[in-house]
């Protein structure tokens, strides 16, 4: 079966447990090499974080369990990379026109 190598998720979480604890728990999962948890919006009780996970064989279910266990709620899956290599998105002509590049 194909392997997931990178996942980018948008998650809403309570302030506690902190993103340090989240990064620790996510990186403890089997098949994960690196985790980046980035806060981009803070509210009174919750915060929105962008979670980037890279690894050899990422278990999506394991990640969902960590999110659920820590009181988070998954808003969207923003990027998925699978296969034996990690491939970045290709820049198309439309992208260049949109960004003016």
């Amino acid at each position: 079966m194909g392997k997931i190598r990178r996942l980018v998720l948008d998650v809403l979480k309570p302030h506690q447990p902190t993103i340090i604890e989240w990064a620790r728990q996510l990186s403890d999962l089997e098949g994960i090499d690196a985790v980046n948890v980035n806060v981009y919006e803070i509210d009174q009780k919750v915060e929105n974080v962008k979670v980037t996970i890279q690894g050899r064989d990422i278990s999506y279910d394991g990640i969902l369990e960590v999110i659920r266990e820590n009181g988070g709620s998954l808003h969207s899956i923003d990027e998925v990379v699978g296969g034996t290599l990690i491939i970045e998105e290709s820049i198309t002509l439309q992208d260049q026109l949109r960004t003016g590049g």
């Binding site: 809403l12 979480k13 309570p14 447990p17 009780k45 820590n70 009181g71």
Partner: peptide
């Protein structure tokens, strides 16, 4: 009411 999830069976609960 913020997370819109049931937190009872989580670490927080």
């Amino acid at each position: 009411s913020y997370t819109l999830t049931d937190l009872n069976e989580t670490k927080i609960g």
